[in-house]
Nucleic acid binder design. Sequence first.
DNA 1: CCGATGACTCTGC
DNA 2: CGCAGAGCCATCG
Length: 116
Amino acid sequence: MTDSLSARHRKIIEAVRAIPRGRVSSYGQVAQRAGLPGRARLVGKVLRDLDEGQKVPWHRVVRAGGGLAFPPDSEAYAEQVQRLQRDGVNVVRGRVPRLHWEPIDDMDAQIWGQPF
DNA sequence: CCGATGACTCTGC
DNA sequence: CGCAGAGCCATCG
């Protein structure tokens, strides 16, 4: 009843919701954090099927390398840029600067610490 | 089962 | 930087 979504989908949603404001993560990283290494495409599918009432910060998920997953002339692209800027994340030439990427390991976290 | 698709990623040229 | 190829895997016809 309540769960028309599989457990994997929920883990992915949680992983996306866990991305802090001012930071972005990649599809692959979200998949890994959800315990689904190699399922980046699945993450994309889940995000695509999101409802508006889900309250998921989908805009904080970008491609590996920091680029947005939408064509620059699309509305989705424009909206993602808007939302990111509202988060304090600047988008330069279609991609998010490194400082906003989620640290991969503890050492990175120690070096970079907080993005601001 | 097969083939096509896709909000992906990595490697190589 | 861009493009092709291959790997990946859920979903659909």
